[in-house]
Design a protein around this nucleic acid. Structure first.
Length: 772
RNA sequence: GGGCUCAUGGUCCAGAUCGGUUAUGACGUCGCCCUUACACGGCGAAAAUCCGGGGUUCAAAUCCCCGUGGGCCCA
């Protein structure tokens, strides 16, 4: 009886062949029906090489969602997209070609960006395909396509007409390196070392002075008041006094405010426009008149007097020197300061009053909270990230950006009266490069217009992904069938951006929530538990790993190592050792391929025992798959296949399956059970390791793809877990005994079989060559 | 300062809303073994006072409180 499968190990090269078959057989094609399972797949952003290994794990798991749903009998719509709008590619292009965006002709710069994106995108698509993603690659979408940008602009025009957009001049987070406003959500905090400068401020008409500590002495020229804590007794006597600001000699008032911390510096704080968000709040609350000390070029403005034109950091150094020579400097201290920086350029942000477009969101918060409650989160704990974010929203969403590579804001202004004009939706507009489609100004009838040059925040594009994939405004029939989507899989770190903005925008545009479930995955960290980044040098390139070990090994690692929702560590060696399980599965299948597949058989006590354990496994997997938690089935399947099925059951029935000293009926019971168990294992594993299961399935059980099968259903067989324990204990006992007597495993030995294992006596005897 | 989350052999992790025998498994280490699926294997061994303290209970890795330390997020 030669095994039908002859190769001794799973060869990952076979994956390429299988991919081709899937392609030819079109087994993942989607035709909308009345009831569909739509996955709002995250379009990854090609921002540079290499792609993140955590992302590869993430997309593997998203595919497991698709396959799980498919095997549950759902009609799965699994679109694939690439997000191509935004700042990172601009920075990448500037670096790659050693150019500056603002010194390059806009059209030319956009072309360079597009080329860079095409390159990076090709690698991502290659990785996603190699991973076996069962998505729609033939129609994959790009967020910078004409069609997508038309949607972004149309939805903006719609919201504009509904009065949800307004222009306002406000202190804004300004990233002067990128030359653009950024949203609060794009700010991160970094601990940077800086100097805390203790300055002497004279109290007017006295010879007394107070000390004020600040990390931003260059903003002295924008200082409007000094605050102290109302409970700080050191300053009680000076409240209401005029204080002379060093260098500028301006007079400001000393007031009390609870936000001044007594422990920080001297307890007295200078309030300037704008050192930080607290300054913004204070200027608003105390109705102070703002002074713009830093311009859009990131340099000091003329109010800075002799420091005009310097960058804030240069001005700081110089002003510290001047304070010292003029006797205003008490001391300086080196401190580490949590500094708000731009997430993308890493430059410290400045707060500068600027005119930007805003999308109303403050009033929508209660509604968003309700929607958030309606959405089922996997795992449930991550709903809290959204709720915390909603709790902290206190300004509307600034949506305009002073960048090039993004969807253009479709507005033209009348040259004469500046009235803004928004065109009709349904077309992609580039106002910086196109004539205004409106012939006369609606206000003054003038015929000359100026196009808006700014673009949208990229989340304006990303936040309509459920509308794009469902062909909103393009195909009503399709839209009705696939919207709202079923599930939004995404990473934990963009809950407050992508997840939240999608909720907001889709509700504003359709009145409905965009999906009923949200599936949130943790971060991929390095082997020490630190965040991976290119600058730290601890990033792992997923492509060579996948090429070397194969997608299934990588996928099984991802499922068995990542407890859903928690952060996970990536370790190449760990991934490699995962391969052992696939080898085990392969060799179990190779052994079974020696026996004919038979449809039925009369199971013996041993067979019934393993079938009860198998049924337990089916139940366990079902629990995991229903929550889209692949950690549960992966661990359970590995444990069962390796440590129960292969280690004990197969060894017990080997002789019976060969028919040595057993009747045909007994033999067939074993063969039937072996195949039933293996075929069930393959089906249980199919969503996690689609390649090897497909190959073995076709070798052993069917011409048709395993991915057209339905999930195995529990048969509710009574549990026999105690038997498992007794069997494995007995087997260990025999093995140990033989070892201590220096016997080979095939040698005979005399050991009493416990009474409880009486039903398994014949199998155990043949397994261990036990003497009566 | 607030929130979420984690802490179990050298390393990673299970023990999930339901407290209950000797705390699961993998990686690594060591020893033995070619046994007609597999040496990418099998068997065996060593290795954990379950972060600390307190409480509830007949019973706590598990529940509660306090603390310590890490990660992430927000301010």
């Amino acid at each position: 009886m030669d095994p039908k499968i002859s190769e001794k190990a799973w060869n990952p090269e076979l994956e390429k062949e299988i991919l081709k078959q899937w392609d030819e057989e079109k087994i993942y094609d989607f035709t909308p029906q009345d009831d569909n399972f739509t996955i709002d797949t995250p379009p990854p952003y090609p921002s540079g090489r290499p792609w993140h290994i955590g992302a590869a794990a993430h997309y593997s798991q998203i595919d497991m969602i698709a396959r799980t749903a498919r095997m549950a009998g759902k009609n799965v719509y699994f679109p694939i997209g690439i997000d191509r709008n935004g700042l990172p590619v601009e920075l990448y292009t500037e670096k790659k070609h050693k150019i500056r965006m603002r010194e390059t002709e806009r059209g030319e710069f956009l072309n360079l960006c597009r080329e860079a994106l095409d390159d990076l995108e090709a690698e991502m698509i290659l990785i996603m395909k190699s991973l076996g993603l069962s998505g729609d690659f033939t129609n994959y979408y790009r967020t910078d396509s004409e069609e997508y940008r038309t949607l972004t602009q149309s939805t903006f025009i719609d919201l504009w007409k509904k009065g949800k957009v307004y222009l306002a001049n406000r202190p804004n987070n300004y990233d002067w390196v990128s030359g653009t406003t950024i949203a609060d959500a794009e700010i991160i905090y970094e601990d940077l070392s800086t100097k805390l400068v203790y300055m002497k401020f004279k109290i007017k008409d006295t010879d007394k002075e107070i000390i004020i500590a600040s990390t931003r002495p260059e903003l002295l020229c924008a200082c409007k008041t000094i605050i102290v804590n109302p409970e700080d007794e050191r300053y009680t006597q000076y409240i209401g006094e005029k204080i002379i600001v060093p260098i500028t000699n301006a007079e400001v008032e000393l007031r009390t405010h609870h936000s001044a911390q007594q422990e920080f510096g001297s307890g007295a704080v200078m309030v300037c426009s704008y050192g930080d968000q607290n300054d913004v709040a204070l200027f608003r609350e105390l109705e102070l008149e703002e002074i713009v000390a830093i311009g859009l070029d990131g340099r000091m403005t003329k109010v800075a007097g002799e420091y005009t034109g310097l960058k804030p950091k240069q001005a700081r150094t110089k002003i510290i020197e001047d304070l010292e020579t003029k006797g205003f400097l008490e001391k300086t201290e080196d401190i580490v300061h949590r500094t708000p920086v731009s997430e993308r350029s890493k430059a410290p942000i400045e707060i500068i009053p600027m005119e930007e477009y805003y999308l109303k969101q403050k009033k929508a918060v209660p509604k968003m909270k309700d929607l958030g409650q309606e959405i089922e989160f996997h795992p449930p704990m991550h709903k809290q990230i959204l709720m915390n974010w909603l709790e902290s929203i206190n300004i509307d969403w600034p949506i305009s950006r002073r960048r090039y590579y993004g969807t253009e804001i479709p507005i033209w202004y009348c040259k004469k009266c500046s009235e803004p004009h928004v065109p009709e939706p349904g077309k992609y507009y580039k106002p910086w490069n196109e004539k205004c489609p409106i012939s006369n100004c609606t206000k003054c009838d003038s015929t000359e217009f100026v196009g808006e040059e700014r673009t949208f925040d990229t989340w304006m594009d990303s936040s309509v992904s459920p509308l794009f994939i469902s062909k909103f405004n393009r195909d009503d029939e399709f839209f009705k069938k696939v919207y709202p989507a079923s599930i939004r899989p995404q990473a934990k770190d963009i809950v407050r951006t992508w997840l939240y903005y999608t909720l907001l925008r889709c509700e504003q545009l359709t009145g409905k929530k965009p999906w009923s479930e949200a599936w949130v995955m943790g971060y991929g960290l390095d082997e020490k538990g630190m965040k991976m980044s290119k600058s730290k040098g601890n990033a792992i390139d997923p492509l060579p790993v996948i090429e070397k070990l194969g997608a299934d090994t990588f996928r099984f690692w991802s499922a068995s190592e990542i407890n859903h929702g928690y952060d996970f560590r990536c370790n190449e060696q760990k991934i490699e050792t995962t391969k052992k399980f696939l080898s085990k599965l392969w060799n179990v299948s190779r052994f079974l391929s020696s026996f004919p597949v038979i449809e039925s058989g009369k199971p013996s006590a041993t067979d019934e025992w393993i079938l009860s354990e198998l049924d337990k496994l089916v139940k366990e997997c079902k629990k995991g798959y229903e929550a889209y938690n692949f950690f549960i089935p992966a661990i359970a399947i590995r444990e069962f296949t390796w440590n129960v099925f292969a280690a004990h059951y197969i060894e017990m029935v080997k002789a019976r399956a060969y028919g040595i000293e057993f009747s045909d009926e007994e033999r067939d019971g074993a063969i039937f059970t072996l195949h039933k168990t293996l075929s069930t294992i393959l089906k249980l594993l199919a969503p996690i390791t689609p390649f090897i299961t497909e190959h073995l399935w076709k070798e052993l059980y069917s011409k048709d793809s395993i991915h057209k099968e339905k999930h195995a259903e529990p048969e509710n067989i009574e549990e026999q877990s105690n038997v498992t324990k007794e069997i494995s204990e007995f087997n260990s006992k025999v093995w140990n005994e033989k070892k201590s007597q220096n016997l080979s495993l095939k040698d005979s030995i005399k050991i009493e079989i416990p009474e409880s294992l009486e039903p398994f006596k014949k199998d155990l005897k043949s397994m261990h060559n036990l003497l009566d």
